[in-house]
Design a protein around this nucleic acid. Structure first.
Length: 453
RNA sequence: GGCCCCGUCGUCCAAUGGUCAGGACAUCAGGUUUUCAACCUGGGAACGGGAGUUCGAUUCUCCCCGGGGCUACCA
């Protein structure tokens, strides 16, 4: 345990939080919790155009839903403008940075002249409204000692003298991140691979400032099923969507943890405390992973089935905007083995409250001679000793043989008569969960509709 | 274009300088069965390509190919 470790999750609120971002948050959280260190939440909102309060709130909500807590923050990066300005002034005063009036076109012209692999070098200007660039050395490499990838060398001569502050004095991302990580005492930066190329820039800033450098670990990106970078096109790409289709937070954590990381003994299902115990940033793989919702569904199904009934009922109730009551609890009990997501539960047990109206199912099973079969079942149920599942079973079980039909020939019409559709939990449980009067009434209705009885 | 990263079954994750390259999801076949699931059994399925190092490479090195990231006075 190392209490001195400080991790951070630093999303930019420019849109919905991706499952990739969620995984980054999860990995940081697992690493922090597993090491006894702390987790800082910082919102990278220096892009005032795209950062909105709604997006910030959305990110916090996703983290809360995933049950990932943090120890400090959320800290708005934009609110640290004063510190940024102070550090910027240091670099300007020391000569490590300089003002330059060059625009994108000038940089291109420079490269046409000096070669595409040559980093831009500007000429200091005394125009107080010019952007600020950092002096990058011409020789040597800036090496990122990445925990996952090992040392990665970036030749300095290919690196531009990059802009660290706009003409108006506000700082840019790579500068703000470096300053904040240093001033917040971050020891471990665990983030997406898309930042690997930014790291030498941040290191250069840190060194110019004489600040301490954190350890870095760059996680492979997540791709969609087509192998391209994950985006909205790929189905449930945002965590909110995952929540809305009925996945359990614990299952999502388990699945996400496995996207890029695995154990030597091939364990697939791991409760969160086990993930905390076993997860190591350095063990994360290097290759990009593809988000596979089918496997998430399977993981989720396993979690659904293992949930204690009370929790299960509460989850189903919450998902459907209801209060958990005895009736729902009874329904959940018979549906728990069958549903893989919370959204799948209601179609299975909605009949408890109201009979469904599935025309296709009706046409499929309510054929010739069905009225008589239902009549026989009705009589058997009316005469049952009680109405527990065992009573219903005792009453119905002998029927197919006595009537000379296959079990399905009787049970399917009965299912449709009672639930209104042809998919439900076991037929005996399904009937038993209704009160006897209600069950008989529904059967009578069906017989009536068939023109029989 | 430049700089950088990555490359094991369809997908995720393992292992190894010498094994029949393993597990999970998915898939296929069979079983169970009152529907749908679930469940059980079994099968197919991978080291991107080419050199080199080596007695021997999936594993080490190089090249190629493929995919990806960055390349803004965005984050």
């Amino acid at each position: 345990m190392n209490q001195d470790l400080r991790f951070r999750f630093a999303p930019s609120p420019t849109g919905a939080l991706h499952i990739g971002g969620a995984r980054t948050a999860l990995y940081n959280w697992l690493a922090a919790r597993g090491s006894g260190g702390s987790l800082v939440l910082r919102i990278e909102d220096t892009d005032r155009e795209r950062s909105t309060p709604e997006n910030v709130e959305q990110i916090l909500e996703v983290l809360r839903w995933l049950e990932l807590d943090w120890d400090e923050g959320p800290i708005s990066q934009a609110s640290r403008a004063e510190q940024h300005a102070a550090r910027l002034k240091e670099l300007l005063d020391s000569g490590a940075a300089y003002r330059d009036t060059a625009a994108a076109e000038d940089v291109k012209a420079y490269k046409r002249e000096h070669g595409a692999d040559r980093g831009y070098r500007g000429t200091p200007s005394d125009d107080p409204g010019a952007a600020v660039r950092l002096h990058v050395p011409d020789d040597g490499d800036t090496v990122v000692e990445d925990l996952i990838r090992g040392p990665v060398a970036f030749p300095n001569r290919s690196q531009d003298d990059f802009v660290i502050a706009r003409g108006d004095g506000s700082v840019l991302y790579n500068f703000a991140v470096a300053v904040d990580d240093a001033e917040m005492g971050i020891t471990d930066v665990v983030r997406g691979d898309d930042h690997l190329s930014n790291t030498p820039k941040q290191l250069l800033v840190l060194r110019a400032l004489g600040a301490s450098e954190p350890r870095y670990a760059h996680l492979p990106l997540l791709h969609g099923p087509d192998g391209r970078k994950l985006s909205k096109r790929h189905g449930a790409a945002s965590v909110e969507e995952l929540r809305d289709v009925g996945y359990l937070p614990a299952a999502v954590r388990n699945y996400l943890a496995l996207l890029g990381w695995g154990t030597t003994d091939d364990t697939t299902l791991m409760a969160t405390d086990e993930l905390i115990k076993r997860f190591r940033v350095a063990d994360v793989g290097k290759a990009a992973a593809v988000f596979d919702e089918q496997k998430l569904r399977w993981v989720n199904g396993r979690y659904m089935r293992e949930l204690p009934l009370d929790e299960y009922t509460a989850a189903v109730a919450g998902f459907n905007g209801r209060e958990p009551d005895e009736r729902l609890r009874a329904g959940c009990e018979i549906a728990q083995e069958k549903a893989q997501t919370l959204a799948e539960v209601w179609p299975l047990i909605g009949f408890i409250y109201e009979k469904a109206d599935d025309e296709k199912a009706w046409r499929k099973v309510m054929g010739e001679g069905v009225a008589d079969l239902l009549g026989a079942a009705r009589e058997a149920l009316a005469g049952a000793n009680g109405f527990e599942t065992a009573d219903v079973e005792a009453a119905l079980e002998p029927l197919p043989e006595r009537l000379g039909v296959k079990a399905g020939k009787l049970y399917q019409p009965l299912r449709v008569a009672v639930t209104g559709t042809n998919v439900s939990p076991g037929i005996f449980e399904t009937i038993s969960i209704l009160e006897r009067g209600e069950a008989l009434r529904r059967i009578d209705d069906a017989i009536g509709r068939l023109g029989g009885g």
